[in-house]
């Protein structure tokens, strides 16, 4: 029972970070139709940055903030290169993000080396039903929920958020109204960077991060994001939590080295399911 509880809570926390990465995928895809293959770079850069900032004696809070903002700036840069030029085909943008993600490896290795890093944020643990659960897990869950609530308010309550949604739903009409889809796309990339950065800052104390951790993070985030067809941040949250818990149970009860495989299997299952639903609909229509 106590093992079950601790797997569940740690799974939820890890799932939250997947959901944050996923919401970055969703924000970028909704506005630009580009699947950002560099999405896994943002948490990695943020995690590595915070680790070295703390190493230089910067206090908590400041270090994390720098990591997140840096990830946002990198998101913006990826956006400028991938979609900054009007008329870039979506597929070309996608390949550009893939290239940038790989290029980032080189920079990361030069700056931080190739060893995994970690740091601790919240120390201590609490006793729940006989299980010792680190406070960090609750911090991750709380921060994620607050972030999703803020995202929801941003998209549905603010004028800028509505303009972003407008670009997502009808770019032509948005342009007629004078909304610049490229600027909105860049904003989405920056937001994707910030969200990815937050995920990295939160997960590094739980799972050490190295330059190549982006694969696991991006795959898991993508698996969570396709739950809502890459278009719904809330479905991505559900997908992330589900995946996190599933992985925690697989790791706990079967074998810890199967994490990526679980995400991959989930992606395949969801995609097959969505494809079968789509063909049913088109058969009904035709």
């Amino acid at each position: 029972m106590s093992a079950f509880l601790s797997y569940l809570i740690s799974g939820l926390a890890i799932g939250c970070t997947f959901a944050l990465v996923a919401s970055g995928f969703v924000a970028i895809h909704r506005v630009t139709r580009v699947v950002n293959f560099a999405q896994g770079t943002f948490p990695v850069v943020a995690g590595l940055t915070v680790s070295s900032m703390l190493g230089r004696g910067l206090p908590h809070g400041v270090a994390e903030l720098i990591g997140i903002v840096l990830a946002g700036v990198i998101g913006l840069v990826v956006g400028v290169i991938a979609i900054g030029k009007r008329g870039t085909p979506t597929l070309a943008s996608l390949v550009i993000t893939l290239g940038l993600g790989i290029l980032a490896y080189a920079f990361e290795i030069i700056v931080w080396g190739d060893q995994p890093v970690s740091y601790s944020m919240l120390r201590g643990a609490v006793d729940i039903g006989g299980a010792r659960v680190a406070w960090q897990y609750f911090l991750v869950i709380g921060a994620t929920l607050v972030t999703f609530a803020a995202l929801g308010l941003f998209f549905t309550r603010t004028y800028l958020g509505k303009a972003l949604s407008a670009c997502a739903s009808n770019p032509y009409a948005a342009r007629l109204a004078g909304i610049n889809p490229i600027r909105m796309g860049l904003l989405a990339f920056a937001l994707g960077g910030l969200l990815g950065g937050l995920a990295g800052v939160l997960i590094t104390p739980l799972q050490p991060v190295a330059f190549d951790s982006d694969v696991l993070l991006a795959t898991s985030g993508f698996a969570a994001a396709i739950f809502g067809g890459l278009n719904s941040p809330y479905a991505a949250l559900v997908g992330g939590l589900l995946l996190g818990v599933l992985e925690a149970f697989v790791a706990g009860y079967i074998n810890a080295s199967y994490q990526t495989e679980v995400a991959m299997v989930l992606i395949i299952v969801v995609m097959i399911y969505q494809a079968s639903r789509r063909s049913t609909v088109s058969e009904e229509v035709s």
Partner: peptide
């Protein structure tokens, strides 16, 4: 200002929000 062929609304946004976004340039 243009009323485009086929209306081209933002279908998921409310009527009021569709209207609000029409004022983007003078926001």
């Amino acid at each position: 200002a243009q009323v485009p062929e086929g209306r081209q609304l933002f279908p998921d946004l409310s009527v009021a929000d569709n209207l609000r976004l029409g004022a983007w340039r003078s926001r």
